[in-house]
Computed example of a mutant assay.
Amino acid sequence: MGESTTRTAPRGAGTNKGPVGSRAGQRLSGLAVALGLVLFLGGFGWAALVYRPYTVPTGSMTPTIGVGDRVLAQRVDGSAVRRGDVVVFHDKTWVQNSAVVKRVVAVGGDTVSCCKQGKLTVNGKEIDEPYLKGGVAEITNFPTVKVPEGRLFLLGDERQGSLDSTAHLTDAASGTVPRSAVDARVDAVIWPMKGMLQRPTGFEVFGALSQPGPLRTMVLLIAVGAVLVLAGGAYGPIAKRMGGSRARTEPARAR
């Protein structure tokens, strides 16, 4: 007589899969969440160390920066500032206890004047300034200024009515400010979302321009971190739902 045998599944078989997915999947989702948090928080922490937010209260930098725009400025030493940079600085001879945002158009040793055919002149060269409204320096003519060493000559992008170096020409330093007064260099307008400032190519004739800070890298880290956190967190509910669907269909196949 034949003996009937009953096959039993090995102990532990099937335990690696269930309504919440495989153990490997759970581990990977946990790793994704952990890595995502590191990238997300690390990006924000890095940005907090390197950048400072400012709100620009006037229209002296329009159209580049409008009234009330929120900007991110990279903390830099004044010695790193170059022509064309938009900087944040403090100078008590200009404004008491308030940050000022202007564009550097000349540095120590330069000779600057305005205007020739509607263009600013630095060291005898006419400067193209596409960031100006209409690309023309609509400004009251000012006499030639020789910028002292270690100082900066600054103008607003809205040249008419801007309280910049031209409003302080009668000062002992001919409207210039020391490099040491610079706190930061503006990299981007974040509200409204105008993005990174364009490099002022008109000043390339005098050498290399300042390079943008690491803001794009920071944004990438934050974005990738957010995606990993969301993807890792969504794995469990998705696997549970898929497991439940399989459980409902398998008995029907056995009939």
Rank of each mutant, 00 (worst) to 15 (best):
T5N: 09
T8P: 01
T8D: 10
P10T: 03
R11I: 08
A13K: 04
G14R: 00
N16F: 06
K17G: 06
P19Q: 00
S22G: 12
S22A: 02
G25S: 12
Q26T: 05
S29K: 03
L31Y: 09
V33Y: 00
A34G: 12
L35Q: 06
V38P: 10
F40G: 04
W46R: 15
W46I: 15
V50R: 13
P53C: 05
P53A: 08
Y54P: 02
T55F: 04
T55I: 15
V56M: 00
S60R: 02
S60Y: 06
T64H: 03
I65R: 01
D69C: 09
A73W: 01
R75N: 03
R75T: 05
D77T: 13
R82E: 10
R83W: 03
D85A: 06
D85Y: 07
V86F: 07
F89T: 03
D91L: 12
T93W: 01
N97D: 15
S98Q: 15
S98D: 15
V101Y: 08
V104N: 07
D110S: 07
V112L: 03
V112F: 06
Q117K: 12
Q117G: 11
N123A: 02
P130F: 04
P130D: 12
G135Y: 07
A137D: 13
N141H: 13
F142M: 05
K146I: 07
G150A: 14
R151C: 01
D157N: 13
D157K: 06
E158V: 01
G161W: 05
S162Q: 09
D164V: 11
A167E: 08
A167M: 07
A167H: 14
L169I: 12
L169H: 08
A172P: 05
S174G: 05
P178H: 07
R179S: 12
A181K: 09
D187C: 10
A188I: 07
I190R: 09
I190Q: 05
Q198V: 11
T201E: 15
T201Q: 13
T201H: 10
Q211W: 09
P214T: 06
L215E: 12
M218L: 13
L220T: 11
L221A: 15
I222G: 01
A223L: 11
V224C: 10
A231G: 07
G233L: 15
G233N: 08
Y235M: 03
R241Q: 14
G243T: 02
G244Y: 02
R246M: 11
E250D: 03
